[in-house]
Design a protein around this nucleic acid. Structure first.
Lengths: 170, 170
DNA sequence: TTAAAACAGTTTCAAAATGCAACTCTTTTC
DNA sequence: GAAAAGAGTTGCATTTTGAAACTGTTTTAA
């Protein structure tokens, strides 16, 4: 019984991408991490159309990634700030940045230098580890699918391991 | 001198998003990690339009995230397989999955159980660490901007730290 | 205290991307 | 050797995006 090994329409990656997986949202979150808070600043730094920015910010507020705060002194003037949920995208964005640094280098552009603010120690490459602290890459990972009662390894699809081998556990 | 603290049109996150930041590409890569390789399988599992899938796969091949392999016995029949570059999105996708598990839980849907294939040890939450092994969250990180010769902390924009405080180093 | 500028959007309309269905042509399978 | 499956294309309708102008507030500065 092979067909669909993971019923992933309810996959949390898909759900995450529904919230921040469009063309602009992660860029907005990234700018927010750099300190941008105002509508015009997002607009100018991204070069995004104002109406699109408006719908994106609204969506991000609805999904609780940003919060809209009235900072006007005599009326209404707004700022968009990261929530805990938005701030928690930090790890994923660092992983994405490191991937970009490794695989899409830009001539004459050196990677952003990020460090421990207190000690100056540089940030290390983000790794997936198990609870014993062992770093794992995709080939080392097994996914147990409780619904279907079968285990499987992630493939990373290369020529060494055929589809038959991968699905032999079913 | 405040205006733009990071000239990020050349930011590696932006470059990464140019390659995999659209609505479908990361889902395609994720399926590829689960072992999907064929055009029709991607199409059916994603519910994506065939022409769109075609342009996405072509783009991913062009940017060397996937490779297109002829597996026909008497002619042409293709598979799309992850390259090293594509496989290296694993870390980022695990971080995204964990974010989704934490913040967009689905009723009755428990997180995918991922483990070390050899030992059965569960995967731990992905963390950003410095080279001394110290786990850092966004508030602990400093970015040194060599172009502008200034240092800055990432803000995570909440009400505790005002924009003035953040930019006081300039 | 008032005029000018800045903010935070809307609205309108054109251009681009996406989705759907039908249609090819080749390759497997039976 | 026929039928089915794979891997796309093509054409057209729908949706999303982008650009620019337009509104109504709120600050700033004289």
């Amino acid at each position: 019984m092979v067909k669909k090994r993971f019923e992933d329409s309810t996959c949390s990656v898909a759900r995450a991408l529904d919230e921040v997986g469009d063309w602009w949202s992660l860029r907005i979150v990234l700018l927010a991490m750099y300190g941008t808070r105002r509508f015009v600043d997002f607009q100018q730094e991204l070069g995004i159309a104002r109406n699109i920015l408006c719908t994106r910010l609204t969506r991000l507020v609805e999904s609780d990634v940003l919060q809209k705060v009235n900072v006007g002194e005599h009326g209404c003037r707004y700022e968009y700030r990261l929530t805990d949920k938005g701030r928690d995208l930090f790890t994923m964005l660092v992983a994405l940045r490191q991937w970009g640094d490794r695989w899409t280098p830009s001539p004459g552009q050196e990677p952003l230098d990020m460090r421990n603010r207190l000690t100056g120690s540089p940030i290390a490459p983000v790794r997936v580890c198990d609870q014993d602290g062992q770093a794992l890459d995709i080939r080392d990972v097994m996914v147990s699918n409780k619904v279907m009662g079968s285990d499987d390894v992630l493939s990373g699809s290369d020529e060494i391991m055929s589809r038959d081998q991968i699905t032999s556990g079913d």
